[in-house]
Nucleic acid binder design. Sequence first.
DNA 1: CGTGTGATTGCCT
DNA 2: GGCAATCACACGG
Length: 213
Amino acid sequence: MITPPDRTPLPREFFDRPVLEVAPDLLGRTLVRTTPDGPIVVRLTEVEAYDGPNDPGSHAYRGRTARNDVMFGPPGHVYVYFTYGMWFCMNLVCGPEGRASAVLLRAGEVLEGAELARKRRLSARNDKELAKGPARLATALGVDRALDGTDACDPGETPLRVLTGTPVASDQVLNGPRTGVAGDGGVHPWRFWVANDPTVSPYRAHAPRRRSS
DNA sequence: CGTGTGATTGCCT
DNA sequence: GGCAATCACACGG
């Protein structure tokens, strides 16, 4: 018998903890994106931790700027950034406030609203690919910079929130090097994913760009 | 299946 | 000016 997922929103205290505690604890949780056309619901299967100014892989490593401002704010808020000239990726800010740590949401399994996600992810060959990768996840959910700084723990209307869901047992959580992170930041095994889950994105080591002629 | 490369813009040095 | 917390597609085995 299948236990229905718990639909209680995660409180701000959940995120007001060290990012290395929060990141694995997010796996299996339920991400809800509210759109005018209806909700899109995703079960989180892959995340990465970024630990503020002490982490060379973090956007906050070189201090506060206009882009990463939200990371330095209170936990439970959404940090969205634009990258490679085309894509958005989303994070949830963790505690303590001011440390500028955050969890990058990298992949998930679409539980509801797959038909809405498919309209934004026309190249997806099947439903497992709808949110397999951080930019794909953001695209599937219709997340862009308009959501940067929004509060995922607001008790009222929120475009994005996280529910208790059914957290993954710790022996089903694997970890390894972060994807696409260059230099010293690549040494930290701060990518966390659900074992044997087909919606987890393939690992890609960081590849420096070559000059085109 | 794998590897290689072009796309495209904003950010930071 | 260099390059990024990426993706899609082409091509070869």
